[in-house]
């Protein structure tokens, strides 16, 4: 496993990814999930031949993987700062990795809730 001690670029990337990726993943899930549901269940019946559950499931899976990997990255970063592997004089990396962990948990839960909801509904029932 790569040590973060000599990977400053990766450290910066993980900080940013941990904070930005989970909210973005959920946003994309919401926009294309809701959009697809409206289009497929609407008058036009536009669905490009893709079923409701396959679409929502795939979107949820990808969102979950992105958010999950971001969360993992934040956890790794947090542990690395705890071990003193990273040069962190202002405590900024530790701070941002903590924020990343909190954000990851919240948005992973949200993505999972959404997945549970969209995958247990029946067709276009109102």
């Amino acid at each position: 496993m790569v040590s973060l001690a000599r990977a400053p670029r990766l450290t910066t990337l993980l900080q940013a990814y941990g904070i930005v990726a989970p909210p973005l993943a959920w946003t994309v899930q919401l926009v294309i999930g809701y959009g697809f549901a409206i289009a497929a269940c609407g008058e036009g019946g536009v669905s490009g031949g893709i079923g409701l559950h396959p679409w929502q499931g795939t979107v949820a899976l990808v969102a979950g993987l992105v958010a999950g990997s971001a969360w993992g990255g934040a956890l790794w970063l947090h542990a690395a700062t705890g071990r003193g592997e990273i040069d962190d004089p202002l405590g900024r990396v530790r701070f941002l990795s903590t924020i990343g962990i909190v954000i990851g948990v919240i948005f992973l839960t949200l993505i999972a809730f959404t997945a549970a909801g969209t995958l247990t509904t029946h067709g276009c029932r109102e």
Binding site: T27, Y34, T121
Partner: peptide, 26 residues
């Protein structure tokens, strides 16, 4: 990401509304 919770009684399909129920809880 919660706005459709103002539209839960408009006859939208459940699969569309559920996104917003989830976010409104979170």
């Amino acid at each position: 990401g919660v706005w459709v919770h103002h539209m839960f009684a408009t006859g939208l399909p459940e699969i569309a509304m559920i996104f917003f129920a989830a976010a409104s809880l979170i």
